[in-house]
Design a protein around this nucleic acid. Structure first.
Lengths: 210, 210
DNA sequence: AGGCCTATTGGCCGGGTGGCCAATGGCTAA
DNA sequence: TTAGCCATTGGCCACCCGGCCAATAGGCCT
């Protein structure tokens, strides 16, 4: 089932949890065909390490100190569109999946899949390129996925801070009425009956981050 | 630095991420003095496995499908108060630390510590018993820690769902005015200026869970 | 016993909320 | 080009919010 070359697949791991990184490195090193050539725990060193080692496949976590993992992905794809990046994260939020795929991830695997699935995903990403093995999600809901516009996300981030419509208007340089219109759109799209519930939905869907 | 006995410390791992579990098991097995005797990925099998194997130290994650890891901890301490349980989780929320320690955890280690620290924590928990190696937290804030009362948490959980004070009153069988009083207390304790912000703070502090 | 926290309830009131009506211009996918 | 979404703005209006005033009662710690 493997490609023609028998060189091990050169991997780089990026995860902000040393325990997870060490465990993963151990796990992958024990699997024939894989070779962990670099590791990083934050965005800056992830980019530096990737440029230096140019791994065959980059395993990228989303929650990182400093820059977002997705932001790292964007930068890497910007300078090397053919890069193979496999998102490996705990986040089951649709929003993260959506953004990752939009940013050019070769795959998206949650940490609640079996190691075998991860191995297979890595091989697939390396050889064929593609594959979105997403794993079971227990928090996922099958809501209609109404995406918030840029402006609406901006407004939601002010709503979560407790700002009133008037304040939001002032902060964004628009009228109070317009802020209200955005909030109404947010409520409709998130299926919320009040701004308070909209904030909750925002967190649940991964639109808002802690 | 080790105890008098040279038997390996018998460990049980509970984490809902197979990748993390496998990695941890690998990592710990490679370290002399540790022996992983059992693993579990959910609350039910965690309790069953613990009863069967009675490990020297239980490494317990908090986010689990079904019951909370803290709930598992409570049940275990209820039937075996001398049990050594080391919380090993990604959560840096004060609330989780507080509840874990209150429930009798022997230690609390976040996954963003180095493996060596984890090893040391396990040994300490086993031998001396105690130790709260908590690791750096990047989201942690140095707020005053005003704890919400039971009733207030109950109210906050209704607030997050978008209920009005009147509805909360009806749902809890109290007057609208009383619900308001609780909300006011919540706002004061969380340093929020509006219920919307209170919800955000709730998520940030780990009082509310996604 | 006195102090402090919690839970409970009341009224007054300025300001905020969100649904409904309706309108404009820009941009994009079909 | 036509349809649809997006961002923008306006008024009307019933209802909700949260601060401030004040009060009663139980529990717990000193």
């Amino acid at each position: 089932m493997r490609a023609k070359t028998d060189r091990a697949i050169r991997l780089m791991l990026v995860d902000d949890h040393p325990v997870m990184r060490a465990g993963l490195a151990n796990l992958l090193s024990g699997e024939p065909g894989f070779s962990v050539v670099a590791q990083a725990s934050d965005a800056r060193s992830a980019l530096a390490g990737w440029r230096e080692h140019r791994p065959d496949v980059l395993l990228l976590d989303i929650s990182l100190p400093g820059l977002d993992g997705i932001e790292v992905l964007r930068q890497i794809k910007a300078e090397a569109p053919q890069a193979h990046v496999l998102m490996l994260t705990s986040s089951e939020a649709k929003e993260d999946v959506r953004q990752s795929m939009a940013a050019g991830a070769a795959g998206y695997v949650t940490k609640n899949v079996d190691p075998d699935v991860l191995f297979a995903a890595i091989r697939d990403v390396f050889e064929r390129q593609g594959v979105v093995a997403q794993g079971e999600s227990r928090t996922e809901r099958d809501d209609v996925d109404e995406t918030l516009s840029q402006r609406e996300q901006e407004v939601l981030n002010l709503v979560r801070q407790g700002f009133s419509n008037g304040e939001i208007g002032r902060l964004l340089g628009i009228s109070r009425r317009t802020a209200r219109a955005h909030v109404s759109a947010i409520l409709r799209k998130l299926g919320a009956s009040a701004r308070t519930e909209a904030v909750t939905r925002g967190f649940e869907r991964g639109i808002l981050k802690i």
